[in-house]
Nucleic acid binder design. Structure first.
Lengths: 294, 294
DNA sequence: ATATATCCATAGTTTAAAACTATAGAAAGG
DNA sequence: CCTTTCTATAGTTTTAAACTATGGATATAT
């Protein structure tokens, strides 16, 4: 049994066809037939049920498939690492991040570019714990900036900074008259909030719960920019992480603090504990950490 | 790059010699030289430093070695699983366990033998969290009985039962006169206890701490049987898990309860979450769980 | 109903690569 | 200085993975 056979097997399962898989693998169909037959003989199990039109995995085949995918992923990851070890000082650093990353990252990147002028940086939005774990495990990126601690043995989460949430209201909103705004004042307000699955939503709803106020959710959005626009149009109020202050400020909206101490989030940097990271990546992580230590 | 090359590379690293490794691998030395040269060419790194008398890993080689070992372990584990899927109803079940396992396991095994008469059971003593994790990860056993929860994402720990610790004293000991024994009474006593690294030691010392008593450790032992013998000889007192009651009772020793509620341990059953376990193993685990549910 | 296309299996052949043997060259030990 | 030990090189054999050609089965179209 070797990895070649596993790769073949996996491709067949994906394509549900020998001939299609053979094309993708750039080999002839009989070669593929042969390889799988040898594999089945070796493990002494039928892995695939070839019935009229279409293939199906047997029970053993299903287990075998799961293991094979995991094994091949690890093998590919090893090759990625080796590739990265070659290109010292050049190559690409891939980062997964939350939206607010853009507010502070440019300040760090300027310095870093002087040290490593040939490094290319790629940023992808990665939200939610599961997505973060997958992003790192698949070696899609070297590290992520996330707004929740990642609960996984193979992943290290380092807290970077805490930030409060602030309230964004239309300039004509009556809340604007009040000196101090509490959660009770938000009870009747039409609230604009992230859709389910986003951590900011959970953070905010948890705060409502802790303050014993029922949120009146009016509109659910995916991007916080949308929330800002809606407030601008006078369609409701929204709650944003502090770092959005600069970008949220427009002629018709006003930023207000909420008088509470339950509305705060921590932003983390997460990476795989036992992945080899190039000196450039380590340096960048170090820069980010020291930026927030001050 | 294929697993064959990784296997070759690993063997060379272990043997620190091409020719020795070639013998172990049952191939000729030039074949091995050739394989490694091709590997090095492919990854474009020198992996081994062949200097006069003896080999050394390069830095890249070291990282490569770690990954290779992990990959090969997983590959071998997959083959073990396949092998086990073949022998349904026969084969061997391997269990790692703490000492006190022997007190209750025979009661369960009798029933199990009727259901699966062809299954062979192998028990090995596996103590300490690290050893348990390793034992499971290396596929040395199907599950373990342990006296501490295993803190690992890939391992499931199920609590089986709680048991109190009891005090074993010599029949002439003055503690024997007392109606109720507290931790304060143990302050001056010469204590026989497990050596560092055993969970029973930690459990007992934690209780001393919580009761604000300084233990007077007189003798450190590896096996609890040794502790019993020492008490028998009148050399001190010891604290044992309850399940030892029957085996500890000898003419010259007396079992006493300690009046406290901080001296207790939980025994767990731990297994790898995503390992395939044969129906026989599942049944045995089920039997154990239901035995303690009553 | 018959033709056609699609799909996997089988047979035989070619080609690539992993093994082998024999041997050379370097370095350490007696 | 000779012997031993070790890895590398050269050339050959053997293994096995690829190929082409083709057959039989089944579903879809005419």
């Amino acid at each position: 049994m070797d990895l070649r056979q596993l790769r073949y097997f996996i491709t067949i399962v994906h394509e549900k066809s020998y001939s299609k898989a053979a094309k993708i693998l750039h080999i002839s169909q009989p070669s593929l037939s042969n390889a799988i037959m040898k594999l089945e003989k070796e493990v002494s199990f039928q892995l695939l049920e070839r019935n009229t039109r279409g293939l199906e995995l047997t029970e053993a085949g299903g287990i075998f498939y799961t293991r094979s995918v995991d094994l091949l992923r690890r093998f590919n990851n090893m090759q990625v690492e080796l590739e990265e070890m070659k290109q010292v000082g050049s190559g690409t650093i891939s980062i997964g991040s939350i939206e607010s990353f853009k507010f502070w990252f440019p300040k760090i990147i300027r310095n870093f570019k002087i040290l490593y002028p040939n490094i290319h940086i790629k940023v992808k939005e990665v939200l939610g714990e599961e997505k973060v774990i997958d992003f790192l495990n698949q070696y899609n990126g070297h590290f992520t900036i996330t707004n929740q601690p990642i609960n996984n043995d193979e992943i290290m989460s380092i807290p970077l900074y805490n930030e409060k949430f602030i309230l964004l209201v239309h300039k004509d909103d009556d809340l604007n008259e009040k000196g101090s705004i509490t959660f009770q004042d938000l009870a009747g307000k039409e609230l604009i909030i992230s859709t389910t699955g986003f951590q900011t939503r959970d953070d905010i709803l948890k705060a409502f719960k802790e303050e014993n106020v029922n949120p009146n959710i009016f509109y659910e959005i995916e991007r916080l920019e949308t929330a800002c626009s809606l407030v601008e149009e006078g369609l409701g109020v929204t709650i944003l992480p502090e770092s959005y202050i600069k970008s949220a400020v427009t002629p018709n909206t006003v930023i207000r603090a909420i008088d509470t101490n339950v509305l705060e989030r921590t932003v983390y940097l997460a990476y795989l504990k036992d992945r080899y990271l190039s000196p450039a990546v380590c340096k960048l992580v170090e820069e980010i950490r020291s930026f927030f230590k001050m």
